[in-house]
Design a protein around this nucleic acid. Sequence first.
DNA 1: CGGTGGGTTGAGTAACGTCAAGTAACGTGG
DNA 2: CCACGTTACTTGACGTTACTCAACCCACCG
Lengths: 259, 259
Amino acid sequence: MPMKKQKDPLCGMILHAERGKCASCEVRALSICAPLDRSALEVLADLSEVVNFRKGDSICAEGDPVDYFFTVQSGALKTCRLQSGRRDLVTGFLFGGDFLGLAFFAGQIEADTHYPYAVRALSKGRLCRLPRQAFSKFIADYPLIEKQILAKISLKLEQAENHILLLGRKNAREKISSFILQLDDAQRFARQNLESDFQGVDTVDFPLARHDIADYLGMTPETVSRALTQLKEDGLIRQLSSRCVALVQRQMLEEIAAG
Amino acid sequence: MPMKKQKDPLCGMILHAERGKCASCEVRALSICAPLDRSALEVLADLSEVVNFRKGDSICAEGDPVDYFFTVQSGALKTCRLQSGRRDLVTGFLFGGDFLGLAFFAGQIEADTHYPYAVRALSKGRLCRLPRQAFSKFIADYPLIEKQILAKISLKLEQAENHILLLGRKNAREKISSFILQLDDAQRFARQNLESDFQGVDTVDFPLARHDIADYLGMTPETVSRALTQLKEDGLIRQLSSRCVALVQRQMLEEIAAG
DNA sequence: CGGTGGGTTGAGTAACGTCAAGTAACGTGG
DNA sequence: CCACGTTACTTGACGTTACTCAACCCACCG
């Protein structure tokens, strides 16, 4: 059984570690590997391993040494900072195509670095794992990858600044509205780029629990719940299930989110 | 007279635009130019211009095209995001040695980019200005600089995550304590690296007004003031003037800041 | 059919924001 | 250098928001 507080990151996680199949990678278009050619992918496939994780698994703890980089293939993860005697703070999420290890890259690939946050799984899923040393060498030969990583860091910084604005100056209603739209954007983007032929109503899935949303938005689960029911009562969203809502009035949501 | 809301960024600002003197730059050790050799500095000096700014000047507005990069030589600036009908949010500060333009760099030096925040002066000071195009070419010849920029972006991201933690999970008292320590660290670091021979009591200068602190910490000036007097009453700090405090019990401050 | 965990709802409270008054600090012009 | 006007800062009274603690509901699972 998956323990609530895993002391052995990764140990219980790897069910079937097997050589990566980069050529047929489903999320390549979203990942840092997007610009690589056939031969580069062959080289990379020899470095990479696919590992599975289950809901609740700990990928790494705060302060762990960074021995691997990861690309998320499926599932959802959260990066969080712990505080003694208080709710954690979730600094961000990782979905298919996202890269884990960004912050440790810039300029200090050779240095011994440590994770500044813990990473935990919100659902089951799959990671592509790359040994740090080997991948660092690989990058040296394929500068295109470095550019991709730079672009991702830049994006991350922009997201962080938006998050700062949200935490610093928005109330519960505005936070929730922003969050729903954020998820919606991410899910539209993924659908579009992976060329899935899905075309339905504008619905948003929450791949996480209320308390995770709360920890991301700097509030409590109760307040999250209350803000959601308020939006529901105002007819801005419709709740299909506890983990899925339909956007009824996107325009209005955007206005609220903007403040 | 400097207007409160400047519509013409930079126009009123440049008093004496003159060729940079990189060889004798006072903040080089702190800046991205630190690793450059004599000949590189000569080249750079031809690209750069020194411009002066006064308290309240607007360096750029949100959405302005990025035509120049800057290194701060002296004085203090804030980067802020505006919100209609609400207090601004200050996302960060720039002091001597800091580089302005980081976020626009990564991976898209050639693209037409825009500032995601406004930059305003908190005091008078001096900037080193570099035309974007020319500096981008310069970087291509001196990869050391690119590494420096990467390191700075990485640092920025780390700071952003700390800021997120502060805004999301700390109360007024903890926010102020963190802020004081942050300023103290920055000021110690600057003193140390610039090898000033100053050796006094452990005091911290606030190069900014209460409302700027409030906008940075996601609170109001009144609450900032109250939190400061509380720390004063508890004997953790001593107030030498409205813009300068002495750290009486650094240890305790650190404990409070950590939560 | 009871147990469990996630989610919602309610009542009371603490923390912070708002509004307003008062005080100290500063810069300017005489 | 002083008098004045302006701005920044502090303090107080009050209102609002979101947190805390608790009960309850519901879906899912043994």
